[in-house]
Design a protein around this nucleic acid. Sequence first.
DNA 1: GAGTGGTCTAGACCACTGG
DNA 2: CAGTGGTCTAGACCACTCG
Lengths: 238, 238
Amino acid sequence: MTTNKYDSIYQELAKKIDQGIVKAEDILPSENELSLQYETSRETVRKALNLLAQNGYIQKIRGKGSVVLNVEKMRFPVSGLVSFKELSKTLGRRTCTKVHEFGLIHPDPYLCKQLKAEPDDEIWRIIRSREINGEHVILDKDYIYRKCVPMLTQEICENSIYEYIEDELGMKIGFAQKEFVVEACTDEDEKYLDRNGFDHIVVVRNFVFLEDATLFQYTESRHRLDKFRFVDFARRGR
Amino acid sequence: MTTNKYDSIYQELAKKIDQGIVKAEDILPSENELSLQYETSRETVRKALNLLAQNGYIQKIRGKGSVVLNVEKMRFPVSGLVSFKELSKTLGRRTCTKVHEFGLIHPDPYLCKQLKAEPDDEIWRIIRSREINGEHVILDKDYIYRKCVPMLTQEICENSIYEYIEDELGMKIGFAQKEFVVEACTDEDEKYLDRNGFDHIVVVRNFVFLEDATLFQYTESRHRLDKFRFVDFARRGR
DNA sequence: GAGTGGTCTAGACCACTGG
DNA sequence: CAGTGGTCTAGACCACTCG
């Protein structure tokens, strides 16, 4: 699959846990045993196990072993860098994306600050609403550096921008910083969303960086109160 | 400080970045150089650098080096397993905790489900409100297994339960799972909080596990909409 | 080409849990 | 006590960036 030995071990074990071949409370084979099974060194096995631990699959307990966690909910893939398309797959609901505005702009002062951009930079601006079970409950406002993504079409935006960037352009997302707050609804929310009487909205501000640490996108994702849910898995000192 | 070599290297470098001795965009000494400086192996240095990367201090770029991230905001220590006491330290505002209810109970059906407890288990129940700048804006409802924490006093709850558990009892928190949603205010919110007209509230449900993977606490933290903020730093594939 | 980080190895010693 | 995971070492080869 992948070219990494530790990553393929991780994938394989994760799959076994996902499929219930190994169950919660079970104890994985010891690191020594696994290094024999996979014909690799113990350190390589440990990298795979650490990945499993970081992703909430197991808890390593000294002197005992690696316990599989009972995690139907635990590994809800909403945390971290998940795109709407991946998300809707997990939700398994009828979802649909509508592109309302699409084009190139020069950033206003607010956007200059958010994107650390210059006033004459070219920025893609995309306004989309997300429909879940027939209701428009999420408004996404995306701003992307043109110097990072030279071309973009309305069709790509209707599908998945991330898929295009990662699969087509071969760029790699490095990390992201999200901020969650609740704010009063704006006229824009009013215009594009089914407000359903709510006068506040959950705002997720997302700064996305590439592997070489350049900021390439700022997104404001506005969720209707009753449709917002976020799950986070955290380890001490991660 | 700590007994770990890689952890003390991590602490030292993190401190240098926090204090601005190394600035954003700077490149750290290479892994080979650091292993000479600290008289250790390269793998040990790499563990320290990976910790820095996971915590948003640096981005490692192959062929170039470890770039220090510009992260006044990036490392906002709200993500993950942070207690209110640690939080208020960072916020630097006038904060105060008031204990409204405190005692031992047997769990009702809802709590049995959340804590995976039996009806005759003994559970500590603590209801506290958090005051920030003179307003009660957070309501914390804590439920803790007595079999994990045999003794607890009102004084401890006024200070910090985590501090007591970790420092006094020497127990170690392993991991936690949080869920964020927005719900309608309850009578309890009404009773203990300064609602300020808001009829909805941000609810953070938190399941805390010890190092040996036992669930020992369930907390419901209810934040007034306008005072809620959450920051998350995420890396691809964590 | 020299230097960087990414992967991998085959050892070693330690601290901890269990019977 | 034997077995577990946690730390650490001193090498090796690779893919990548930059001048």
